[in-house]
């Protein structure tokens, strides 16, 4: 495992050690889980992982903006954004002194 960053490969390795599957099967399982997670965020607008947090999506309306360099007025299109809200339990685990 790298010193500073945890990657998908590290997580695959951790799951691999707990199951009887080979690494490529575990990799595919993780990819399928990520596909379901993304689909849930897109279609349900919400994915709640208790003890971890909640991924939420919300729609933003189109708005008028300006190119800061040229000062040209432009219309920023409507879009859907995703945010992560931290669970209180997880927050308390990271800040044990409080």
């Amino acid at each position: 495992m790298s010193e500073k960053t945890l990657t998908k490969a590290d997580i695959v390795e951790e799951i691999y050690e707990k199951t009887s599957r080979n690494r490529s099967e575990v990799k595919n399982q993780v990819e399928e889980m990520l596909a379901i997670i993304k689909q849930a965020i897109k279609e349900d607008y919400s994915l709640l992982i208790s003890g971890f947090g909640k991924f939420e999506a919300y729609d933003k309306k189109a708005r008028k903006g300006r190119n800061p360099q040229t000062e040209d007025a432009i219309t920023l299109p409507s879009r859907t954004v995703c945010v992560f809200r931290l669970s209180r339990k997880f927050r308390a685990e990271i800040n044990p002194q409080q």
Binding site: L6, K8, V26, V30, M33, F84, F90
Partner: peptide, 26 residues
Amino acid sequence: VIVSTFFDSIKEALKAGKRVEIRGFG
């Protein structure tokens, strides 16, 4: 096992002050 290990590994890494990068997700 797959779902719990996934989120637990992320939690443990963050608690240890590490960064986490899941390509294509965030």
